[in-house]
Design a protein around this nucleic acid. Structure first.
Length: 570
RNA sequence: CGGGGCGUAGCGCAGUCUGGUUAGCGCACUUGACUGGGGGUCAAGGGGUCGAAGGUUCGAAUCCUUUCGCCCCGACCA
C-alpha cells in the first residue's frame, strides 16, 4: 500500500472529548471516528486491526472444535419472551416495531437464537457436545457509553455457546474456552487475568471474567499477592480481622442524637461510637410478583455495601429504597435507621456482624440511636451473607496474604448457564435411556473492540501506539527521506516491492512530506518497523527503526530484508 | 435518571460575563518558490447558516425561552 493513496487521517492534537489513552490514540491515529454517543466508525487502519483480532479469535475457536455461524442482529420479540428476558431486561435493550407493529429488538447477545436453533436441530445425546459461535454486531443501549470503543452501544462480540448432555460435559466445554481465551489474549499481547465473577442477569451458576489491567477499566478486581485467588470485587471476599468487642450484656438503650445523620457524625458525637462499632442499616426494595417490598441490609459502620453480594443473597430485582418508602417501612428518615425489634421485614446481615455485642445503630426514630445492641439477641436476622466490599490489603481467605485491588477492563466473560435457557425454551435431547433431557449450556463472550482498546492501553508510549506484531495494521513502513531524490525513491520502491512479494504487510510512505512529519505518523500509528532510505544510501546503508525498542541503526541495504524477516519471525 | 461541563472551519481553541466594522488564532488544506534526518520558511488562497428553533433589540456568536447533541462524575449495567 502506498501511504499517499490511503485514508489515514492522523491528528496532531488529542480529541477534546477523550480521556482514556486508547480512545485518544484510536482517534488520533485514524483508527476510528465517532458518529454518536457510543457509536464509532472504524476507518481502514482501525478495521485492519479489528480484523486481525477477529482472525486470532476465529483460529482459536476453530482449534477447540467450535463451528462458526452468522446470526441476525434483528430479533423478533417472541423468542426473548420465551426465555423471559424480554421482561427481565430493562432499558439497555434496543426495542423497535416493524411496519406491522410487531415487537422486535436488536440483539444484545444470542442465547435465545442459538437455543432456538439447538432445540430444532439437536435431538439426540449422540449429537453432543456442540460448540457454536459467531463474530457479530451487538447492540446495547448503555446508560453511559464511555472511553471510545471500550463501552459502546454498538460493538462486535465473539459469542459462543456450548451444548452438552450433562454437567461434566459443560465443565469440559467451559474449560476448553478458558484455555482458548488465554491463548487468544496472549496472542494479542494482552496479559489476561481470569477472575471469579458474578453472572448477573445472564443467569447460571458460575462465571469467570478475563480482565486486562488498565486505569481505563471500569471494574475493580481483588488479586492475592500470595496465591492465585482473584475475583471481581463484586464477588471478592477476604479474611478480614474480626473486631473484638468488649463484653456487653446491658439492655438496649435509646438516646437522643440531634442532627446526627451519618456514621461519621456519630463517631465524634458525645456518647456515640466508633465506626466499626456501629451497624449501618440500608433499605432496599425487592421486586416480586406481587409488587415491591422492603428488605434491610446490615453492614458494619465503616464497610461499603457490595450490591452484587446483596443480589446474590436476596435475589434479583433489588434497588435502593426512596425516602418515602423508608419512612413507610421503618418510621424514620435515613440517618436514624436500625433493625432492632424490626419484624415483618427480611433482614440480611453481613457475616462480619455475627456475634457482635455493644453495637450502636439507629432507633427508627428521627434523631435517636440505640446502644448496647447485641446483634443476635436484639435483631431478627433472616440470613447472614457476604454483603461488604473487600478493601485493599485485607488478607486472602485462601492463604492469608494481602489482597490487592486493581482496576481492569473486562475483555472476556464465560458462563456456565446450565439449564437456564434449555428449560425455558425447551431445548432437549433424548439420552441413552430414551428419556428427554434438557441440554446443559454455557455461553462465552469476547469483545473484539475491547481487545483492540486493551492492547493499546497495554502498549503505547508518548509517541503513540506500539502494536504487538499480531495486531499491527502494517508490519513495516518504508520511507525515503527525500522523495525527489531518485536513488532514495528507487531504493524505497524496490524494497517495498520485495517485502510485498514476500507477503509482508508493508506500507510505502511516498508522501512528499518532510521526514519528521512522516516519522511522527509512523510512530503514532504504531508500525513496528521502519526502513528509511537516506543519506547512508551512498554507502549501501539504510536505517532500520524498531518501534518497540525505539531504536534506529544503520544496516546494509542488502541485508535489511533478511533482518526484517528475522524480526518478524518469518 | 441526578450533578457538572461543553457545542464557533477537518482538529485544538479565543471571542459570550459587559450586544455594535466584513467572526478571529494555531494546526491541517490549496497554489508557487525555497527546502529536505524529527511535525520547515516565505508568499498568495479556499473553507463558517457561531448546534437548532423561537423571541428581545436599530443591531445577537454574545441577552431570554425552548430544544437537540457530546463529554465527565454518580446511579445503572448480559
Amino acid at each position: 500500500m502506498r501511504w499517499s493513496e490511503t485514508f489515514i487521517p492522523t491528528l496532531r492534537n488529542d480529541p477534546a472529548d477523550a480521556e482514556a489513552a486508547s480512545h485518544k490514540l484510536m482517534v488520533r491515529a485514524g483508527l476510528i471516528r465517532q458518529l454518536g454517543s457510543g457509536i464509532y466508525s472504524y476507518l481502514p487502519i482501525g478495521w485492519r486491526v479489528a480484523r486481525k483480532a477477529e482472525a486470532i479469535v476465529r483460529e482459536e475457536m476453530d482449534a477447540i472444535g467450535a463451528q462458526e455461524f452468522y446470526l441476525p442482529a434483528l430479533h423478533p420479540a417472541e423468542v426473548w419472551k420465551e426465555s423471559g428476558r424480554w421482561d427481565a431486561i430493562g432499558g439497555e435493550m434496543f426495542r423497535l416495531k416493524d411496519r406491522k407493529d410487531a415487537e422486535m429488538c436488536l440483539g444484545m447477545t444470542c442465547e435465545e437464537i442459538f437455543t432456538f436453533l439447538a432445540r430444532d436441530g439437536l435431538n439426540s445425546y449422540k449429537q453432543l457436545p456442540q460448540i457454536w459461535y459467531q463474530i457479530q454486531c451487538k447492540f446495547r443501549d448503555e446508560p453511559r457509553p464511555k472511553s471510545g470503543v471500550l463501552r459502546g452501544r454498538q460493538f462486535t462480540m465473539k459469542d459462543s455457546y456450548s451444548f452438552d448432555k450433562d454437567w461434566a460435559g459443560l465443565d469440559a466445554s467451559f474449560d476448553k474456552h478458558a484455555v482458548a481465551y488465554k491463548k487468544i489474549f496472549d496472542r494479542c499481547g494482552i496479559d489476561s487475568i481470569p477472575v471469579e465473577a458474578s453472572s448477573g442477569a445472564m443467569g447460571g451458576s458460575e462465571s469467570v471474567e478475563f480482565m486486562a489491567r488498565s486505569t481505563a477499566g471500569e471494574d475493580w478486581i481483588a488479586r492475592c499477592s500470595g496465591c492465585d485467588y482473584s475475583a471481581n470485587v463484586e464477588r471478592a471476599v477476604s479474611a478480614v480481622e474480626p473486631i473484638v468487642d468488649e463484653p456487653d450484656d446491658a439492655a438496649v438503650e435509646k438516646f437522643p442524637t440531634p442532627g446526627i445523620r451519618t456514621i461519621a457524625a456519630l463517631v465524634t458525637f458525645e456518647g456515640g461510637a466508633a465506626a466499626d462499632r456501629q451497624i449501618k442499616t440500608l433499605v432496599f426494595m425487592k421486586r416480586t410478583e406481587e409488587g415491591e417490598s422492603p428488605v434491610l441490609l446490615l453492614i458494619q459502620g465503616d464497610d461499603e455495601l457490595n450490591e452484587v453480594g446483596a443480589i446474590d443473597a436476596v435475589g434479583a430485582g433489588l434497588r435502593p429504597a426512596h425516602e418515602e418508602e423508608i419512612v413507610k417501612a421503618l418510621g424514620a428518615k435515613p440517618g436514624s435507621l436500625g433493625a432492632v425489634g424490626v419484624k415483618d421485614i427480611p433482614i440480611y446481615a453481613d457475616k462480619r456482624l455475627k456475634g457482635r455485642v455493644g453495637m450502636t445503630t439507629g432507633a427508627n426514630h428521627d434523631d435517636h440511636h440505640v446502644r448496647h445492641v447485641s446483634i443476635e439477641r436484639d435483631i431478627a436476622v433472616t440470613e447472614w451473607a457476604d454483603l461488604r466490599l473487600v478493601r485493599d490489603g485485607e488478607p486472602c481467605t485462601k492463604c492469608g496474604k494481602a489482597l490487592e485491588l486493581q482496576k481492569a477492563i473486562e475483555i472476556g466473560h464465560i458462563f456456565k448457564l446450565g439449564l437456564r435457557y434449555s428449560e425455558s425454551m425447551k431445548a432437549s435431547v433424548i439420552d441413552e435411556n430414551g428419556k428427554l433431557q434438557p441440554v446443559v449450556m454455557g455461553s462465552y463472550g469476547i469483545g473484539i473492540d475491547r481487545i483492540v482498546a486493551a492492547a493499546i492501553e497495554a502498549h503505547h508510549d508518548d509517541k503513540g501506539i506500539r502494536w504487538p506484531l499480531s495486531l499491527a495494521p502494517y508490519k513495516v513502513v518504508v520511507a525515503p527521506i527525500k522523495l525527489n531524490d531518485d536513488a532514495q525513491r528507487e531504493a524505497s520502491e524496490k524494497l517495498y516491492g520485495e517485502l510485498k512479494a514476500l507477503g509482508i504487510e508493508v506500507i510505502y510512505d511516498d508522501r512528499n512530506e518532510r521526514p519528521g512529519a512522516k516519522f511522527k505518523d509512523h510512530e503514532l500509528v504504531g508500525i513496528p518497523f521502519r526502513v528509511v532510505t537516506g543519506r547512508g544510501l551512498a554507502d549501501g546503508q539504510v536505517e532500520l527503526y524498531d518501534r518497540y525498542a525505539d531504536e534506529k541503526k544503520d544496516v546494509p541495504l542488502a541485508e535489511v530484508v533478511d533482518l526484517l524477516k528475522e524480526r518478524l519471525k518469518l
